[in-house]
Simulated assay, not measured.
Amino acid sequence: MKGPLFYAKILLFGEYGIIKDSKGLAIPYNAYRGALKASENLSGTALESNLNLSRFYAYLLALKTDLVSFNLVAFKEDIQSGMYFDSSIPQGYGVGSSGALVAAIYDKYAADKITILENLTRDKLLNLKTVFGLMESFFHGKSSGLDPLNSYLSLPILINSKDSIEPAGIPSQKEGKGAVFLLDSEQIGETEPMVSLFMNKMKNEGFRKMISEEFSTTSDACIEDFLQGNVASLFGNVKALSKIVLANFKPMIPPAFHKVWENGISTNDYYLKLCGSGGGGYILGFTEDFAKAQKSLKQYKLELVYRF
């Protein structure tokens, strides 16, 4: 048994903002992927994954919803036969490891599933996103459903608001100097504590005002620039966003990277932003000159995502 591949995702813009109904832009990241496999002799991470699938099975068995039903008999039998999720997607890194797993389980066991070959109307996309949010809540406590949606469709997704999402056409990559890259913090980040921290901060009126007037507005402008291919304007807005995140989301940035973050803003060699919920994992970088950014960040591991 070997299932289809499901890819990692990168939320280019919109982290935390999408919880509060501002825009988001997510793209598939094909460097990492996962698939359902089976083995009679499980050990190590495969055994761990199999046990995790048993817990997920119990969660889906107790899930009360009219939106979706699953062939749980087959799911249980496959788990007992040694099924596991074989994945290269790093966990706790903000690139959708649980999202790819959720997409794989939906694809294999959902009854009357919405397929990627259908005409994906707004209602179908919202239905999928809601179902995926319910499923992925097993891993994070609360989920927007965006990661599994991105992995399932393997398309860039534009979130306009909670009730409006659409596949997005992003400009094709160029062989220019500019780039989007991942910086490895070499620390695991946990989504749930970071989201809880954010929700607590949202109780503060000043923080709420900053989110709606500064953070969301700047993030939305970045999305607009990226989709339109306005590279010059994009970097100005990404720099502004990087400053806002440093000033207001410090607990979500690993302490060892506060100075690295400031250095990018002051030298203009690169600009950093959160990749997912933060707290560790990957940090997302934008640069007008990737070679210069590599030189500035030579002691860190960088991965190229997109070229301008």
Rank of each mutant, 00 (worst) to 15 (best):
A221M: 15
G281V: 10
A256H: 12
E175T: 05
C275P: 02
K273V: 09
G189R: 01
A46H: 06
A179L: 08
A35F: 14
G3Y: 00
Q80F: 09
E190W: 03
F215E: 00
L146H: 10
L182Q: 00
K20M: 09
A62L: 10
F198V: 06
S97V: 05
T287L: 07
S242V: 11
Y16T: 09
L304V: 07
S266P: 00
L5R: 12
S216C: 11
K23N: 02
I105M: 03
P90N: 07
T115G: 03
Y271P: 11
A8L: 06
L153F: 09
L227P: 05
S233R: 03
S277H: 07
I211H: 00
I89G: 08
L183A: 04
T218D: 04
S196D: 09
W261E: 08
S161H: 08
L126T: 07
V95Q: 01
E192M: 13
T45M: 15
G276Q: 11
F249Y: 01
Y109F: 13
F235C: 13
A221K: 12
F139K: 02
D86P: 04
L25I: 09
Y16W: 10
G141R: 02
D78M: 04
P167I: 07
Y282H: 09
I157T: 03
Y32I: 06
F85H: 02
V245H: 05
L51I: 07
F215W: 02
A256D: 09
S81A: 14
K239E: 14
S277M: 13
E186L: 07
G133W: 00
Y84P: 05
Y271N: 12
Q91E: 14
I170F: 03
A104G: 00
L134H: 07
E186R: 14
D184A: 04
G281K: 11
D225Y: 05
N41F: 09
Y306E: 04
S97W: 05
D112G: 07
A168N: 03
F308S: 04
S266A: 12
H258I: 13
P148D: 14
Y93T: 02
T45F: 14
A179T: 08
S154Q: 10
P255K: 11
F138R: 04
V231I: 13
Y109Q: 02
K174Y: 14
S185I: 05
V95K: 01
K162E: 15
G278K: 02
S216Q: 15
L63Y: 05
I18M: 08
G99S: 09
S144M: 07
G44D: 11
A221V: 08
F85N: 01
G145W: 01
V195D: 02
V238H: 00
A232G: 12
K301A: 15
S151L: 07
F75Y: 10
K243H: 06
G82F: 00
L246G: 06
N230P: 13
K273M: 02
S69I: 02
D225E: 14
I188Y: 13
T115C: 09
A168M: 00
F6G: 01
A58E: 15
D86A: 04
L51T: 03
I116Y: 10
L297D: 01
A8V: 03
T267K: 11
K9N: 04
T267S: 15
K239H: 11
P167H: 00
Y59N: 05
S88N: 03
R307F: 06
N52I: 13
N204R: 00
N263G: 11
S81K: 12
P255R: 12
